[in-house]
Amino acid sequence: MIRRRHVLPSVSLAEISPEVAKLSRRRLLRNGLSLGSLALLTGCDLSTHSGIDAALWAMLRFDDRVQSALYNPQRLAETYPASAITRPFRFNAYYPIWEVRPVPENWRLAVTGLVADKTPWTVDRSPGRGSPMVA
């Protein structure tokens, strides 16, 4: 694992390994079921170009307009204490949890644009801004 100093929302492989093992066993069953539901409800995954998808996209554009009308940059999100963090944190990326790859030692995030400090980010330089598990 990558050594870090005080990264707050983090997860260790030990924390999630029981969950990964459980999900891996269910993988075949789950994939079978979700394929079945997709076959029943074609056009629901937003990756095809059916009429249902067109209707959904139209509604989502309307939704975007409502969201921008509601948006006020003065309102700030509620903050929570570190003790409120769920450990291991809940996983809901687009890829399954058993495909999570640990961040390599040489991971860099280039920073460009109108920012004062353009030094690339590393895992050690981003305290509290992510986990070493982000692939």
Binding site: L40, D45, Y94
Partner: peptide, 12 residues
């Protein structure tokens, strides 16, 4: 059960 859900995955 995933077979009872609509959208296929979270974003859907």
């Amino acid at each position: 059960p995933w077979g009872l859900t609509l959208g296929g995955w979270l974003a859907g």
